[in-house]
Design a protein around this nucleic acid. Structure first.
Length: 273
DNA sequence: CGAACCTCCTGCGGGC
DNA sequence: TGCCCGCAGGAGGTTC
């Protein structure tokens, strides 16, 4: 579920509660995630958390040297919430870190497509899961020229290209559709056929939609909640995602829907060409 | 290499 | 009411 804005909302929610705290206990209730939760996680007891960073949809909880980093990915259904040790565990609360503040960070993930790893390399970005990632969409490295280079010669749909984390990180199924609406581009357009001018518009649209969604605390479709339990408010600002058949909020034309690359895709046939 | 398809897993909503 | 099916915000793997 979580795309970049939801992960960033989570990061901002947990960071003030984690930075400077010491991990008192590590509780692992379920090891079977996308990759097994490593046994070395137990070694984190006694470690002090320094920062909570993000790379794409990955959270990086850094520990004072030489304890390494925790790499957390929320997959489709994962979330991090702050609780207290006295709160009862819910089903699918797979992992908990008890903190020196008396609070407890809990990793919850019904579908278990998420990931919690312990990285021992001082540089977390050297990890194989992070090494091949493309630029951050809100950073200086994501430019029209960079996107054009990724699109050159490709017949794949532009929507699939902007959802490829080697091209740009953090753009998932909701925001890909929304950004293409803002840019006036149909999702199925072959990537290699788009002009630099239109790709530049798409870069701006991706930046804009992600920034706006972060400012609204993300999108809650069914169950995303911030670290403090509050839903995201961006859903009211969706123009196409989840609106198949409904009138376009710009021109009134019914929003169309089709499956593209195994993913549900929505667009306005009039506003997007 | 790129593109199409499959897989992991649980929960929920719609339709019958 | 209850059951079954399809679908869900991700991403890695396989096959051609």
């Amino acid at each position: 579920m979580p795309e970049l804005p939801e992960v960033e909302t989570t990061r901002r929610g947990i960071e003030p509660h984690l930075a400077g705290r010491t991990v008192r206990a590590v509780i692992v209730r379920e090891r079977r995630l996308r990759l097994p939760v490593p046994a070395t996680l137990a070694r984190l007891a006694g470690a002090t958390i320094t920062t909570v960073g993000r790379r794409g949809k990955h959270l990086i909880i850094s520990l004072a040297a030489p304890k390494g980093h925790l790499l957390v990915h929320l997959g489709m259904s994962g979330s991090l919430r702050l609780a207290t040790p006295a709160d009862p565990f819910r089903p699918h609360d797979h992992l908990a870190l008890t903190l020196s503040s008396g609070r407890q960070l809990r990793f919850h993930d019904p579908r278990r497509f998420g990931l919690v790893l312990h990285l021992t390399d001082p540089d977390p970005l050297a990890h194989p899961l992070l090494r091949g990632l493309g630029p951050e969409p809100l950073g200086a490295g994501f430019t029209a020229a960079a996107l054009a280079a990724a699109c050159r010669g490709r017949r794949a749909a532009i929507k699939q290209v902007i959802m490829d984390p080697r091209v740009v990180v953090g753009v998932g199924n909701i925001y890909a559709s929304e950004a293409l609406f803002r840019a006036g581009i149909r999702p199925g357009t072959p990537a290699g056929r788009l002009s630099l001018r239109r790709l530049a518009r798409l870069v701006d649209a991706i930046r804009g939609v992600l920034s706006d969604a972060i400012a609204q605390g993300g999108t809650t479709l069914r169950d995303f909640l911030g670290a403090g339990g509050e839903p995201g408010r961006f859903r009211q600002q969706l123009f196409v995602y989840g609106r198949a058949g409904a009138p376009c909020r710009t021109c009134g034309t019914p929003i169309r829907h089709r499956v593209l690359g195994q993913r549900s895709t929505c667009w306005c046939p009039r506003c997007q060409r």
